[in-house]
Amino acid sequence: MRVEYINPFVESAFNVMKEVLQSEVKRGELYLKSTSMPVMGVAAIVGLAGGVEGRVLFDMDRPTALKIASAMNGEELTTMDDLVKATITELANMITAQAVTKLHELGFRFDLTPPAIFTGDNMEVSNQDVEALIVPMDTVHGKVEINVAIRERA
């Protein structure tokens, strides 16, 4: 995966989370995963299509999702209801869209698909023929891992 793709995601994740959570966000060390990996319990996914193809997965555990959604809504949310899911989905959408906007300015042409969210236990994600780069982000509400898998279209 070309490194030019990843930086805009790291930057926009950092900026958007800092802004919507109104608190500090720390960036962890990036790492590469080429096999399947576990998903923490709540995963929002946004697809990329166009000159390149792939997907971005935002992964966190349930308590983190609830705390992030509570902070973004300005009210305490304690169950994984439709509003919590819509909020996490929108967080994923904002980060991906800002990254796509930046990549667009650099000359990469692709679009994003409406996001989807998965919740459950013992989930894992596998990437066939495409390696995924993981960007860990530490927020005051817990850890969010951003899993980016992009490849140029054959």
Partner: peptide, 9 residues
């Protein structure tokens, strides 16, 4: 808006 969160916001 298709997002319940954004519409509410």
């Amino acid at each position: 808006d298709d997002s319940m969160f954004v519409a509410k916001q």
